[in-house]
């Protein structure tokens, strides 16, 4: 390497490559880091929890250590009825999403409000907490923030869970893990395009809609409808149940795989699911030997299928 031209060449390489990395890494990172989170972004990260892919708290992606989203109709502390409120219950030990601890993720307005009015610094993973998304007007704009309802209103996780019926609990955090693990995003995108999808798949997301979310799992190769607003288009739990168990039951031309294996061994009533019998009757039905298809079992409340359906129904 004794030649002068290689010394010059190496320096030029460093300069060229360094400049390109400065423009494509540093400049966008600074720009994106200045974006404040939107209310959608707060709801997303609070419902998903800390990581949606491989992480310490859930290395095998089974959906443990995730928050539960609930709809509260009575105040967990006083027991008096109140307006339906969406709350995110983090039981003791469940890791908080990154936005709660990281100094920059929430952005300026929501970050300051979450600290001053929302008291998020008083929350603790060891005792758990209940979070709510609130909005206040600041300089003529509605600014969303996270309220640590455990500190502000005295709602602790176990009381809150007791006040919520089974129908008002959504395992969205676990469902996001299933969405990532089962590769739903290889075909269903989570990103309506800015140019084309307004009419069909709904409004494309805003800049601050993803702060605190990992992975975003936008998907790139759309072989199936975009799911960002699917819960607004179709809110039927029955339809979703049939569709996940065997998509051809509700859409004969669908090429989606059957996700019946996410039901596990038993259904919601504790009865063992006999898959081979189900397949046999379904084959008879598709061959025209039966009038009706076999009954699809209702997924057990701790099954993976239930959480995935919860996740999809809450993509609104």
């Amino acid at each position: 390497m004794a030649f002068r031209e290689y010394k010059i060449g190496a320096r030029m390489f460093g300069l060229a490559f360094g400049t390109s990395m400065f423009i494509t890494l540093y400049m966008p990172a600074v720009d994106i880091a200045n974006v404040s989170v939107t209310a959608t972004g707060l709801h997303r990260q609070l419902s998903f929890g800390r990581m949606g892919g491989f992480g310490y708290e859930d290395p095998l992606l089974t959906g443990v250590n995730k928050p539960v989203s609930v709809i509260l109709k009575t105040d967990p502390k006083s027991g008096s009825p109140m307006e339906a409120t969406r709350a995110y219950v983090y039981e003791a030990g469940v890791p908080f999403p990154n936005g709660l601890r990281h100094p920059r993720i929430l952005g300026k307005g929501p970050g300051e409000l979450s600290a001053s009015k929302g008291k998020i610094a008083e929350s603790s993973e060891t005792t758990g907490a209940v979070f709510v998304v609130r909005e206040v007007e600041m300089n003529g704009e509605m600014v969303p923030y996270i309220e640590n309802a455990t500190a502000v209103r005295g709602w602790n996780p176990s009381d809150t869970m007791q006040k919520v019926s089974e129908a008002d609990r959504f395992q969205i955090g676990k469902g996001k893990i299933m969405f990532v693990r089962e590769g739903c995003w290889w075909c269903h995108t989570l990103l309506p395009e800015e140019t084309q999808d307004w009419q069909y798949f709904g409004a494309p997301p805003m800049l601050g809609d993803f702060n605190g979310e990992n992975p975003t799992a936008f998907g790139s190769d759309r072989k199936a409808p975009d799911l960002t607003h699917v819960g607004s288009r179709n809110s039927s739990r029955e339809w979703m149940t049939l569709h996940f168990f065997n998509p051809r039951m509700v859409q004969p031309h669908s090429i989606m795989p059957r996700y019946d294996y996410l039901w596990g061994d038993v259904d919601a009533n504790g009865n063992k699911i006999n898959y081979s019998a189900w397949y046999a009757s379904y084959d008879e039905y598709s061959a025209g030997k039966r009038v009706y298809p076999p009954e699809v079992p209702e997924p057990a409340k701790d099954s993976e299928a239930r959480s995935l359906i919860d996740f999809v129904l809450n993509l609104k």
Binding site: I32, R50, F210, T216
Partner: peptide, 25 residues
């Protein structure tokens, strides 16, 4: 460099659009 920087969303739990951008970076 590409592997080190491109996987930094996992090494450092980067989130949101930074994560999405670095995935495609």
């Amino acid at each position: 460099i590409v592997f080190l920087v491109g996987n930094s969303p996992e090494f450092f739990s980067l989130t949101g659009l930074t994560e999405a951008y670095l995935t495609w970076w």
